[in-house]
Nucleic acid binder design. Structure first.
Lengths: 207, 207
DNA sequence: TAGATTGTTAATCGATTAACAATC
DNA sequence: TAGATTGTTAATCGATTAACAATC
């Protein structure tokens, strides 16, 4: 079970989403059918599946259930462990409520905020705690991922708090470049960039 | 002003974020300095900037202000026009509140939801309207982008409503593969995938 | 002039695609 | 057997990197 490219990882998740929408009776699915449904090359689909699955059967395809398990297992295998969310605004709460993370082996332990009005628990009963407790909780639960959903101005400072608490990776949603010590992983998400990609595609199409 | 690769677009936005954090007095910035600050290759930075800027001056670098303008102009150039958000849950409201879109030439006209409890206006005074009005508003305002932040089960149906209302591109945050007619652009965002990328990087580092 | 920097042209690398052999 | 499918090996394509020339 080797590592795959970023693009492959992206497609694997597409396959998983699609496979889950198949009617319950479906026993087999071919790479050809998958490729057709998702607008991808069929050779590419096969190569991707070869990296994570136990293989398909010529003439029939891949066992649908087995394939789902294989992809899920692969995606879960680099299990990042547990995470905290820093910043319980709309985006922070959206991520707190999101159920898709557990499929990837990530358990969101709690969210933190400085605004007393936001403290307590969210709709699903997850705790929103004061930032003062952040370090303590991280150390106690051995949290390895920090999800930053605070305003840009607060991001670098909160990032520092997370790292001090022993977090090994930061998933940053604030539009700033974070400075971190060697050995800490940062991945920045930027909504506006995704939008820019979309609008460039639109512009290309128009011309 | 040609089109650039997806990766370049991503980096351009990084440059922009970084340039904006420079102290106000900064006149010039070199590709070397940019590369160092963002952990990128300096040749790569130059090539990216060459695609969008009016060029730098040997020995001094690029005029910081001019560079910001050039990048902004480029990002704005494929201006997608106006958008609506369908689904005013936490994520929908987070996007509705997000101020970064206007820099990319996108104006969010309104959000829509089926839940009467969510209707009215959000914290910043943006309208949240009943879905029944979606088609009418889209046609009236010539909306070209639909942002889908509804639960997976409702995504395909709402996508259909958007397309019927003349939307040319759908930015999908629901974890499903949308079927759309030829000529409609779909870009799916998947939070869990981003997480998977992060955790794979973490796993690689551990080994 | 010397040094720092830009910008371009050629080489490398990685991912995708095409062609083909293997299997049921 | 014939046809559909898997899976692999080679060719292509695009993006990154390295080397170098041009500029101030």
């Amino acid at each position: 079970m080797s590592t795959v490219s970023r693009q492959t990882l992206l497609r694997l998740s597409q396959y998983l989403n699609y496979l889950r929408t198949l009617p319950p009776g479906t026993e087999y699915i071919s790479a050809t059918a998958l490729a057709l449904a998702l607008n991808l090359g069929e050779v590419q689909v096969r190569k991707d599946l070869a990296a994570v699955s136990h293989g398909g059967r010529p003439k029939v395809g891949y066992a649908a259930g087995g394939l789902i398990c294989d992809i899920e297992a692969f995606l879960k295998c680099g299990s990042p462990g547990s995470a905290v969310i820093v910043g319980a605004g709309n985006l922070g709460r959206a991520l707190l409520d999101y159920e898709g993370f557990s499929a990837y082996g990530l358990e969101v332990v709690a969210a933190f905020d400085t605004d007393p009005a936001r403290l307590g628990a969210d709709a699903r009963g997850r705790a929103i705690l004061p930032v003062a407790l952040l370090g303590e909780v991280c150390r106690e639960k051995g949290v390895s991922v920090g999800i930053l959903t605070v305003p840009a101005a607060a991001a670098q400072a909160m990032c520092g708090v997370l790292i001090e608490a022993g977090v090994k990776a930061v998933w940053n949603f604030a539009p700033v470049h974070l400075k971190v010590p060697e050995g800490v992983l940062v991945r920045s998400e930027n909504m506006a960039v995704s939008l820019a990609v979309l609008s460039q595609c639109l512009a290309e199409r128009r011309s």
